[in-house]
């Protein structure tokens, strides 16, 4: 039960990473930073007062989308066709820069706000109190997953997003504005990370240093579920969330190591992840 709530947060953190990798082939080491940035935006907008949570949430997400679009236009596009290590280095550079810039802009202290309106009181499940906002968070994550799926599979633009992962040149030949498509995808991925950071703020405190750990968690989730697969990411998030929840209680000494063991095992036996597809052979 509690594992589901952290799964929801993990899913929102990781799904954008998966989306961006699936379509653009970019491994975004700065993804955790955008998660933190979404939380920072929301905190700055509400000035730490939970009353403004729902009101400013869309603004924080919009700001993340804009940041994503700008980063894609200015930086990502220049390394799209370059070797992976340049992409990794570039996004790692962004991680370092965002870390220090947010320290300068938002300060070094812990950011945290209260439970948003409508979720102040716990609910009781089998006589045990359970934070109602956790259910809200699970709902938000489920809604995000569903909307994303509908977008990818039921809209024309979504079809293009999936198609670009398969064959970039063909889309270009068909007259699709591929550069714009890339900007949209990247912004969407970053927007999702920002959304995840913002809705996680009532549950955890955000400070500098969050990004480095968050991005590794996101990698584990995405690798386990399958790079580029939405449902895989969801499965990965639930698995990791539950392992952490139960592992923490049963074998706390091994719970960190165990997530890495799981990651390695998946990579060894199904490198493309539990629900991912084997990569198409590119020549």
């Amino acid at each position: 039960m509690t594992g589901l709530a952290s799964a929801a947060s993990l899913f929102l953190l990781a799904v954008g990473l998966s989306l961006i990798f699936g379509a653009l082939g970019i491994v975004n080491f700065a993804h955790g930073s955008f998660f933190a940035l979404g939380a920072y935006f929301l905190f700055a907008l509400t000035r730490g007062d939970a009353a403004g949570f729902w009101h400013y949430l869309p603004v924080a997400v919009a700001a993340s989308l804009v940041v994503g679009a700008v980063v894609e236009r200015v930086f990502m596009r220049r390394v799209l066709n370059r070797a992976e290590h340049y992409q990794i280095l570039l996004t790692y550079a962004l991680l370092l820069i965002i870390e220090d810039v947010s320290k300068i802009c938002f300060g070094a202290d812990y950011k945290s706000i209260g439970m948003p309106k409508g979720f102040e009181m716990p609910v009781f499940v089998l006589g045990i109190p359970f934070p109602s906002y956790y259910l809200g968070l699970v709902g938000l994550a489920a809604a995000a997953a569903l909307l994303l799926w509908l977008f990818l599979h039921r809209t024309r633009y979504g079809t293009l997003v999936r198609a670009v992962a398969q064959d970039r040149e063909m889309l270009e030949a068909l007259g699709v504005n591929v550069p714009l498509l890339f900007t949209v995808i990247f912004a969407l991925g970053i927007g999702l990370a920002g959304f995840g950071g913002a809705v996680s703020l009532p549950l955890q405190s955000i400070s500098t240093g969050v990004a480095v750990d968050a991005v590794i968690s996101a990698f584990i989730v995405v690798v386990v579920g399958g790079l580029g697969s939405i449902w895989g990411t969801l499965l990965g998030a639930i698995l990791i969330g539950e392992i952490q929840a139960f592992g923490a209680l049963v074998l706390p000494e091994f719970s960190i190591a165990f997530t890495y063991v799981l990651m390695a095992a998946v990579l060894l036996f199904r490198p493309w992840g539990l629900l991912g597809r084997p990569p198409a052979v590119r020549t």
Binding site: F75, R78, V79, Y86, L89, L90, Y92, A93, L94, L95, L96, I97, E99, D100, V101, I104
Partner: peptide
């Protein structure tokens, strides 16, 4: 702000 400086150097290098 060493991380910031390093980030800038890496950015410039990659680009």
């Amino acid at each position: 702000y060493w991380p910031l400086a390093l980030g800038m150097v890496l950015l410039a290098m990659v680009l």
